[in-house]
Amino acid sequence: MLIARSIADLRQALTPNRRPAFVPTMGNLHEGHIALVRQAQPLGDVTVASIFVNRLQFLPHEDFDSYPRTWEADCAKLQAAGCDVLFAPREADLYPEPQTFKVHPDPRLADMLEGHFRPGFFVGVSTVVMKLFACVLGATGGVAVFGKKDYQQLMVIRHMVRQFALPIEIVAGETCRAADGLALSSRNGYLSLEERQEAVALSQALKRLAQQWLDASDRSALEAQAQDALRARGWAPDYLTVRRRADLLPATADDAAGTLVALGAARLGNTRLIDNLEF
């Protein structure tokens, strides 16, 4: 596996290739990331992953400095998975000057849910992804694989690619889960043993909400009840909600099964977890 630290080295390494398949990450890799790398491999003529902890998407009170950085383990996992090129720029390489030009996604999509509770988050995400696309896929286009666990992020990136007419195919990877149903996440490492055992309650709450939504004639109180049930277990929920997959607007009685997604975000102790379930 070739490791490129600078944009120039990356572009030189990719010169012979016409269709890179790209998986952007912030490192601290788990099996969910590796599944995306494996999914990417047959989609291009070279498989590229990136590791970059993007300061722009962290709010001032969030965990940029303490975000886990596990470089050696990450490299070993990527190499074992068959990744061809790892792009691991330093902050000064990707942001050699203050990033005053930024990508501002449509607020109708980006200012709800995660964007409501983490203002500016999707500006940071969109800006760094656009820049990574320019570095990895700028010359020829290609494929980029993103996990469904970050459901709203996937939608924001898809809309960005379409509106800027980028020659990039966005492919979604299914959420990887532990045996008990907990969605794999780098932030699961923050959980204590007791919190880890409790953490599966979020995915279970989304399953119940989805089933109740399909069964109920009056759905007006279901989301509030789902949040109250988590709150009673010691969680601090931001949202548990049912939305339309197409645009993440609130679901209505006219929306059929197979077009909906239940999304949740809640804090357990000091750790904020997110999850979703299509139904």
Rank of each mutant, 00 (worst) to 15 (best):
L222S: 06
Y151G: 02
G124Q: 05
V85Y: 03
R243N: 09
V128C: 07
I51Q: 05
K102C: 12
E194A: 15
Q57Y: 02
P250M: 10
T100S: 10
V200E: 01
A21K: 09
D63C: 10
A80G: 11
K148D: 09
H30W: 07
F101N: 11
A199Y: 00
H30K: 08
Q153E: 11
A49D: 00
Y190L: 02
G32L: 01
V161F: 03
L277G: 05
A224H: 12
D228N: 12
Y190H: 11
I7N: 05
G44H: 05
S192M: 09
L109D: 01
M1F: 09
A172H: 07
D275W: 04
A179K: 10
V23R: 08
Q12T: 14
T175H: 03
P60V: 15
D63H: 12
Q225F: 07
V128N: 00
C75P: 04
Y67E: 08
Q57F: 04
G120N: 07
S220H: 12
A251M: 08
D106C: 00
Q41T: 15
A81T: 05
G27M: 10
V37P: 01
A92H: 13
D93M: 01
G189W: 02
S66Y: 03
T271L: 02
G124Y: 00
G44K: 06
A139T: 14
I34F: 06
Q12K: 12
H33R: 03
G234R: 08
Q99W: 12
R245F: 05
V128R: 04
T259Y: 09
A172F: 09
Q99F: 07
L166Q: 02
F146M: 08
A134D: 10
A134G: 11
S50N: 10
M112S: 15
T100H: 11
E62A: 10
A8M: 05
F64D: 07
R19S: 08
T15K: 13
C75S: 06
F64Y: 14
V48K: 01
Y190P: 00
A76K: 13
A4L: 05
V46P: 12
H61F: 15
V103G: 08
V261Q: 04
T252A: 14
R244D: 10
A262G: 15
A92L: 13
Q211E: 13
V85N: 01
F164M: 12
Y67P: 04
N54W: 01
